[in-house]
């Protein structure tokens, strides 16, 4: 039984400071309201013969001053909260990505190394972690009070949540969005491990293959390779064909009837679309492009890809994305070695 909550992430003390400021302001206002109310009802009770004197005439001044004071305090709190919120939801680029799929009533976790967990999440301390989360059925909410964080997990889209845990330990994980009969049992724990412990955990936890390797098998299984090439290089050439991600530059003309954009190096790069806009190829974009290819067509390509909606499970989607991501990483690595 304790009335305190561990602060186990880098942003927890910042959120606590904001909560403390709000609490302090609330106590001050409550002291003022209750204090004045108590003072007046005693001093000006009907039986009291105390001399009331004349009433204040220019009440307008009072109104203006307390309205202005309220506005000023509120605006300060608003700015503080908004600034911190923006930082809470902007993940750093070097974050380790872990995929979370919610379903009635469990949390399924897929680590990049292929380790899988249910209702438990192991993470290393002092390293930014980005959770990429989706749901197989209804809306859930991934909440870790010790990190002062939560985010709804919505079917049909990816939500992200990032944190840097800084205190090894085991912390509660709750589903905070009502999700049906066993909502209260959709709980688990987040285990924060120190660097060496985490590496040990990775090595002893059976992960069949890495997510990317599993994704490669699925890439062939679902026939993606038929158009995008056996290793995602596009349909007009093998590895080392037209360099992907060369923004705004039309690819070489294709001699194939089915022409598909190359996927090597796609992940994280800007993609020009047929409507003239440019999007960043993140998890969400890749997922949407698999399930609803017609929505965002890459410039100079035709809308020929069939939708895979309803055919690929959320967990398999995660693996496909991990594979496509690995193609990008290969190229980046190659670039680094080459340079």
């Amino acid at each position: 039984m304790s009335f305190s909550l561990p602060a186990a992430s880098s942003n927890a003390p910042e959120v606590d400071a904001l909560l403390a400021a709000l609490l302090l302001m609330s106590c001050a206002v409550l002291a003022l309201v209750f204090g004045l109310m108590f003072f007046y009802v005693v001093r000006y009770r009907a039986g009291s013969r105390i001399d009331r004197g004349a009433l204040a005439e220019r009440t307008f001044r009072f109104e203006i001053s307390w309205t202005a004071a309220t506005l000023a305090i509120f605006f300060g709190l608003f700015l503080w909260g908004a600034d911190l919120y923006v930082r809470l939801f902007e993940p750093p680029a070097d974050a380790l990505k872990v995929y979370v799929v919610g379903k009635q009533w469990m949390w399924k976790v897929e680590h990049p190394g292929g380790q899988r967990e249910i209702d438990t999440l192991h993470v290393p301390a002092d390293q930014p972690i980005e959770l990429v989360m989706t749901s197989e059925d209804v809306i859930h909410d991934f909440s870790v009070p010790a990190f002062r964080l939560k985010r709804d997990v919505v079917p049909g889209r990816y939500e992200t949540l990032w944190f840097r845990a800084d205190r090894p330990g085991t912390y509660h994980l709750y589903c905070d969005q009502f999700c049906g009969t066993d909502h209260a049992h959709m709980v688990g724990e987040v285990v924060v491990l120190s660097g060496p412990d985490y590496r040990k955990w990775l090595s002893v936890t059976p992960g069949s293959e890495t997510l990317a390797a599993q994704g490669q098998a699925l890439f062939i299984h679902f026939g993606c390779s038929g158009c995008h090439g056996g290793n995602g290089a596009g349909s007009y050439g093998g590895p080392g064909g037209s360099p992907p991600g060369s923004t705004g530059q039309a690819p070489a003309p294709s001699y194939s009837t089915v022409r598909a954009p190359p996927l090597v190096g796609l992940y994280g790069s800007p993609v020009p679309l047929s409507d003239g806009s440019v999007v960043i190829a993140d998890d969400r974009y890749i997922r949407d492009s698999i399930l609803d290819p017609g929505a965002q067509i890459v410039a100079s390509y035709q809308n020929v890809m069939p939708s895979f909606a309803g055919q690929i499970s959320e967990e398999d989607l995660v693996k496909l994305i991990a594979y496509i991501k690995s193609l990008g990483a290969q190229r980046a690595d190659a670039g680094q070695t080459g340079g």
């Binding site: 910042e14 959120v15 904001l18 909560l19 709000l22 302001m25 609330s26 509120f74 709190l77 608003f78 503080w80 909260g81 908004a82 600034d83 911190l84 919120y85 809470l88 909410d141 909440s143 009070p145 002062r148 964080l149 939560k150 905070d176 969005q177």
Partner: peptide, 16 residues
């Protein structure tokens, strides 16, 4: 209510 209107403070308190 102000706690919940303050963005970063709402994050831990929401749905609790």
């Amino acid at each position: 209510g102000l706690f919940l209107a303050t963005l970063a403070a709402d994050v831990p308190l929401h749905d609790t």
